Amino acid sequence: MDVVIKDRGNIKWTAIMLPEHVAAVKQEIINLEKVNQPLLDEDRLSEIEMLIYEAMEYNLQLEFKLFKKGYIESIIGSTHFIDYIKKEFRIKDKNELTHKIPFQKIVDVQKV
């Protein structure tokens, strides 16, 4: 005789948990997905710099990976302007929207 156990996982426990506890558990799950900002060494920074200059010269599309509040986000576009005073890139995406990206937020840059 086979016994089938239909376990509902976390669903069965949420009925006896206070709403504050449910919110805390959800927040903890979100926090587990967060990462620390990777540090780039000098060699990788110079590679990224050369890649951006090359892309500006030939109007190539690049994928910029950015660190924002514990997550890595991606923007694809071409470098429109480099502002050395404000220390940011201005990237135009396929919709012609301009994104201002601070130098310190960049984690990686790759050709598309």
Rank of each mutant, 00 (worst) to 15 (best):
N10C: 05
H21A: 10
I101K: 09
E57Y: 10
E63K: 14
K65V: 04
L62S: 09
G9Q: 01
V3T: 07
M17N: 03
E57L: 12
E96I: 00
K26W: 00
D2G: 04
K86Y: 09
H99P: 01
W13A: 02
I85P: 00
K34P: 01
Q104V: 02
L40Y: 05
I85K: 06
E47T: 07
N36W: 01
I5S: 00
Y58M: 05
M17Q: 05
L32K: 13
I16S: 11
L32Q: 14
K100C: 01
K100L: 08
I76Q: 13
N59R: 13
E47N: 14
D43A: 15
K68D: 05
Q27A: 14
A23M: 08
E42I: 08
I72P: 03
N95H: 11
E42R: 12
V4M: 11
A55G: 10
L32G: 12
D41T: 07
I91H: 11
V107Q: 06
I91Y: 08
E57G: 08
E28Q: 11
I82P: 04
E20N: 09
Q61L: 13
G77A: 08
F81N: 06
F103C: 02
A23V: 05
I91L: 15
E33S: 11
V3R: 02
M50G: 09
I106L: 04
L45Q: 11
P38A: 11
K94R: 09
N59T: 11
L62G: 10
S46Y: 14
E63F: 01
L97N: 15
